[in-house]
Simulated assay, not measured.
Amino acid sequence: MTSRVMLISPAISAALREARFDDSCPLDASGLRLARAAAGTLPAVSTVWVSPTPRCRETARALGLDAGPGPGPAGMDAGRWRGATLAEVTEKEPEALAQWLTDPQSAPHGGESVHALCDRIARWLDETVGQVTGRAVAVVEPEVVRAATIRALGAPESAFWRIDVPPLTATELSGRAGRWNVRVGGQLGAPHDT
């Protein structure tokens, strides 16, 4: 059985515009408008997951997606940096930030390392997504898309920060028995293969 999941990154929010570690802020007016404009462009799906953040939940609602009983995977735990901008962390903890950005095992903020996130998302892919029949959609934070892509391709975790995940884009994974293929960069609103 081949499993298919389309990972959709949330629409733009103030936190994304400000390069702020997730602070649970909602979509801004522009993000909400763009997500609503993309509604109805997704293929039919049998299962929907949505990360627990407000911007993911609002994106899913704007796209007309109803989440299933279980939540989608949460984004990376940023520990004490949660709510701070990248500029603020750079100013206050430049060595810690540099370590976190270059060492996938590092978590100087007291939260989750890139390695731990990639492992958590790999388990979700194999144990949850891999059991779904039909096509599924998950509206998830950009770092979840990065982690899924890293694990699906067997790429080194050091490549994590080199994967750009723009707002309202789709990354599709298909596979079975722990082997995944990746289709990247679909802009929502563009036609998808069914």
Rank of each mutant, 00 (worst) to 15 (best):
H115K: 13
T171S: 04
S46D: 13
R4E: 13
C56K: 06
W81S: 01
G185W: 08
D164T: 08
L7Y: 07
S158D: 08
F160R: 04
V129W: 06
F160I: 05
A96E: 15
P71V: 05
G130Y: 03
V48L: 11
V45K: 05
T128L: 09
S30W: 04
P73A: 10
L65Q: 07
L34C: 08
L34R: 15
V139E: 05
M76A: 01
V129F: 06
S113T: 11
A152F: 01
V48G: 01
V182W: 00
A37Y: 09
A122F: 04
A84T: 02
G64E: 11
E58C: 03
V48T: 14
G40M: 06
A96N: 02
A74D: 12
A190P: 00
N181I: 11
W49R: 15
T149D: 06
R36G: 00
V137W: 05
S174N: 05
Q187T: 15
R176M: 08
L97G: 08
P71N: 09
G186V: 11
D22F: 00
A84P: 00
P156M: 10
A122Y: 00
E157A: 07
R33M: 12
N181G: 06
D28A: 11
D23P: 00
P142G: 05
G175C: 03
A177S: 12
A116S: 13
R183L: 12
T53S: 10
L97N: 12
T102P: 00
A87R: 14
E18W: 04
P69K: 15
G31K: 13
A37N: 07
R33E: 12
T149V: 11
A44L: 10
W124N: 00
G72H: 11
G70M: 14
V137Y: 10
R33V: 10
L125Y: 02
V48Q: 11
T59E: 07
S24Y: 15
